[in-house]
Design a binder for these strands. Structure first.
Lengths: 200, 200
DNA sequence: GGCTTCTGTTCTCATAATGTTCTCATTATA
DNA sequence: TATAATGAGAACATTATGAGAACAGAAGCC
């Protein structure tokens, strides 16, 4: 195996599969592979997958693709949680035995977005922060969402329906900015904020 | 028990259940699962739960769902990072940085602390947030630290030395509160904030 | 008790999606 | 020119997915 060099499209296919699995922790469908490498035919995608399998780069049976290369480094997404600390008056720090578990941040439908701008500053989301998004097409009033307006402009705002759902109001958390109201058809929800992360 | 790979919806169901249990400390109803994964039929939700049970990811009898300890809980601490969100364009990828890597949050000298109170609110650290602490006994001016005062009171503040190190000033990020100054011997640093996390 | 409501469970029916194999072009390349 | 690489898409069998009906049991409510 692995004797002959990969053709350009085969390499492209392998790259795509690796990237996809790194992101989604699950194998892509032939349809997604086809789209990912810029073709339309599932049959052709299948041909490339077959070639990669024959060449020993991946194992593929019955649509289940596994990478044969080394797996990405995996770690436990938990931390000891030492108890509450009063940021107001200093009070005793009580050692707890709890664990901070961040696994729900890493669901397969989640992604992260770097925030730019101050429109959510009063919600404690600052310029440069990263928000964790759960991909969903619907939201509840009060959720912080990523909304795509007219399929071209993405924004991070509080979500609220109005007029029995015919309009959607996107509310910034910044008193210097005004809420925006759109017909519901112009707004597409791209996900709901489930967490926020900042580094120092 | 070693399973064939989960289908997409099965994975989605498992993610939802895990997230739900993490948040509510109780198992979701079939109705909620259905809604959570975007379908309307309890019967279909039941089918997925059954499949997860057969595959050994969860234990389910009579509507009681438990997560099994040996399921693939170890996940990698990275997320796709989809780029900056700002007015103008859909989310676009950041060249050279397409993964949010949180592994440095999980170093062995790190721990998490739940914040109580508003003294760091102007630094964007809100009541109920969790801060990630790297255990250290020294800090630099401007760091946010956990400081133990007189070996009995812990507090989260900006750190600053004064009077050539003879005194330590602990500064809240809240203009309604006053900085506090202590002799250096009375203050012991317990760690420095390297990150902050919030859930919604 | 009788009634309603909710739940889990099982079932059938339909439709969409997927992997696979195939033939027929077109394009690049040696 | 000859060969390999690439692409489209049809055809087929199988699986995945979704809706909803039907039923039994539990729980609450009058």
């Amino acid at each position: 195996m692995r004797t002959e060099a990969l053709t350009r499209k085969q390499q492209q296919t392998l790259d795509f599969i690796q990237r996809y699995i790194a992101r989604h922790a699950t194998a892509p469908k032939l349809r997604e592979i086809a789209e990912g490498i810029g073709i339309r035919s599932r049959g052709v995608a299948h041909r490339y997958v077959q070639a990669l399998s024959d060449a020993g780069y991946i194992a593929s049976n019955d649509g289940n693709i596994r990478l044969l290369a080394d797996n990405p480094h995996r770690i436990d997404a938990t931390l000891p949680l030492l108890g509450k600390i009063a940021a107001g008056k200093p009070i005793e720090a009580i050692p707890g035995e709890d664990q901070l578990d961040l696994r729900d941040f890493f669901g397969s439908n989640n992604y992260a977005v770097r925030v730019q701008g101050d429109s959510m500053i009063e919600a404690g989301i600052y310029d440069g922060d990263t928000v964790i998004i759960e991909f969903r097409e619907t939201a509840e009033n009060g959720d912080i969402v990523i909304a795509l307006i007219d399929e071209c402009e993405a924004t991070l705002k509080y979500f609220q329906r109005s007029h029995k759902g015919r309009y959607i109001k996107l509310i910034p958390a910044n008193k210097d900015m005004e809420p925006m109201v759109y017909e519901a058809e112009r707004v597409r929800i791209q996900g709901v904020v489930i967490g926020q992360i900042r580094r120092y």
